[in-house]
């Protein structure tokens, strides 16, 4: 009797899960595996007569000889490292501020969330306008009304890359802040009270209590931001189209161009697989780090 009730419960649970698993299988897992398969073929959409030719790892060999691909890979890593570091740093500062009790805290929290909520395409156009060569705010702030000195920031490799980093940091620091805020809320108040009785000042409390206990959450924020930064696309598409001279070309944008602008389905899929593998490795690395971090931080 008891077993049959349990079995019925399991069957019911499985039925409830079917729609969810079906979507995920058809539109996520099958495509990832199929990408791997496509990446071993030569498929050129504009030349359907060629059909699909199996070439094994040929595309991968080509990928590591493709200078633009390697350049985009380097750009992607540079972008990920710089932007996530700033995001977690600013996220920590924002979290410390919105964790305190003060009048109007709700409004401040909402204001901080605005950049997070804005569509990335909108914030990209907004920053593109701010960096505009003729009437952008940045030019005015640096050179006033002296138009002769105005620069085309997004046409300069270094400044274009910096502009994309700035736009990303502006938009996503608040997400890091929310994760860190959740970590701050989990730290028991008694620890601070005890420290105060022992005569520890604010800096000591931060160094000895807040920071060590926050380490797991900081790492989680770092993972989430890293993985999200690896798929940067909208900013590049709107602000620079990968230029000038591929200085802002990143993997997801390069893969998109190969696949959908040039119709190289096979070669483009190689880039898809590369991005997937990198993200996967980062995820595994961080899970290991967090596993040990949690042990140390939470005793």
């Amino acid at each position: 009797m008891r077993i049959s009730i349990n079995t019925r419960e399991e069957v019911f649970a499985a039925v409830l899960l079917i729609p969810c698993l079906l979507f995920v299988a058809v539109f996520a897992f099958y495509p990832v595996l199929y990408s791997v398969w496509l990446s071993m073929h030569r498929i050129i959409l504009s030349l359907p007569a060629l059909g699909r030719k199996f070439i094994g790892l040929g595309n991968y060999v080509e990928l590591f000889k493709d200078e633009i691909a390697l350049h985009s890979l380097a750009n992607t890593f540079l972008f990920v490292i710089i932007s996530t570091l700033f995001e977690v740093l600013f996220g920590l500062v924002i979290a410390l501020v919105i964790h305190r009790h003060f009048r109007g805290r709700g409004l401040v929290r909402a204001a901080v969330l605005v950049p997070w909520a804005i569509p990335t395409v909108v914030s990209s156009q907004m920053w593109r306008f701010i960096f505009n060569d003729k009437y952008g705010l940045v030019n005015f702030l640096f050179y006033g009304s002296d138009v002769t000195h105005y620069r085309a920031w997004l046409a300069d490799p270094f400044f274009a890359f910096s502009a994309i980093v700035i736009a990303d940091v502006w938009k996503t620091s608040s997400f890091a802040a929310l994760l860190i805020l959740a970590g701050l809320q989990a730290i028991p108040n008694e620890l601070y009270e005890a420290a105060r009785i022992d005569g520890a000042n604010a800096w000591h409390q931060f160094r000895r209590i807040t920071l060590p206990l926050l380490r797991p959450v900081l790492l989680i924020a770092l993972i989430f931001r890293t993985m999200d930064a690896f798929r940067v696309f909208d900013l590049v598409f709107v602000m620079t189209q990968g230029g000038p001279a591929d200085s802002t070309n990143v993997l997801q944008f390069y893969g998109y161009k190969k696949m959908f602008a040039e119709g190289l389905m096979g070669y483009g899929s190689t880039i898809s697989v590369l991005v997937f593998v990198i993200t996967f490795v980062v995820a595994l690395l961080y899970i290991r780090v967090i596993g040990s971090g949690l042990m140390q931080g939470k005793v």
Partner: peptide, 28 residues
Amino acid sequence: LRLRFKGVIMGALLTVSMFPQISIAGPV
């Protein structure tokens, strides 16, 4: 509910949330 492979299912969902869009774009 009582459910076998709960961990696997949760893990699979978490993995999907990490997928870079480009990695499924072509086949989709």
